[in-house]
């Protein structure tokens, strides 16, 4: 999947203008950038829920010209809760054609919630379900907006394992301010700055682009 030539403006403010992101099957692509640089907007453009002034999204060199996306092509995890609260986990897993018991093999603490409405779960538990659905569903590309934020460390490790497992059969684009996990997980990383994407080659560039002070890890991406 490729996205390029994106121009996005809100009123007189130009948010994105020189964008190129490429994601391939069996690759995890990271997106980093300060708040308000347009990371979520870019994911929404890919998903078809935000229309830019200009821009092209292609899968296998085929342009997605309208805003409709097939779930077989793309799925998107927004940074907020997106599941109607009145639905039970049983129903949700049926809708996404996923096996609840495979899920409980990964997250045994959810066994008791099979018949629970998702609105009854804690915020952290809800987020696990939301993340799992998008990562594991049958689709070519996953867009993950802040999958690690508000999730406890033990679950972050399990989510990272899931992403690593699923990347064998899909392309994954992920953004999160917990950038150490992004650095650890991703095969390539783009930093968005001043409306442009910068494909970084060395971790130190994250610091030189003004996103974060890198103290724990140096080297190639």
């Amino acid at each position: 999947m490729e996205v390029d030539s994106v121009i996005l403006e809100f009123g007189s403010k130009r948010v994105l203008h020189d964008i190129y992101v490429k994601c391939e099957t069996n690759r995890i692509t990271g997106l980093l950038g300060r708040n308000g640089t347009g990371k979520s907007c870019l994911l929404n453009i890919m998903f078809g829920t935000l229309k830019p002034l200009n821009g092209m999204v292609r899968i296998n060199n085929e342009a997605l010209l309208d805003s409709a996306r097939k779930s077989a092509d793309l799925m998107y995890l927004p940074q907020f809760g997106y599941i109607p609260k009145f639905l039970t986990l049983k129903r949700i897993f049926k809708d996404f054609k996923l096996d609840f018991f495979a899920f409980t093999n990964e997250f045994p603490e959810f066994k008791k919630h099979y018949h629970s409405r998702i609105g009854r779960l804690s915020g952290g538990e809800r987020r696990i379900v939301e993340i799992y659905l998008i990562i594991v569903s049958a689709t070519k590309f996953c867009l993950l907006d802040e999958p690690f934020s508000h999730v406890m460390p033990l679950h972050i490790d399990r989510i990272k394992d899931l992403i690593k497992r699923e990347k064998k059969i899909k392309g994954i684009i992920v953004t999160d301010h917990l950038y150490e996990h992004i650095i650890d997980l991703c095969d390539e990383i783009y930093v968005i700055k001043d409306g442009e994407t910068h494909l970084i080659k060395r971790v130190e560039e994250i610091e030189s682009l003004g996103y974060a002070k890198i103290t724990s890890k140096n080297g190639d991406v």
Partner: peptide
């Protein structure tokens, strides 16, 4: 509007 993402992920615009 947040719930629309549920349906859009299932292929319903």
């Amino acid at each position: 509007k947040k719930e629309f993402y549920y349906y859009q992920n299932l292929g319903f615009s």
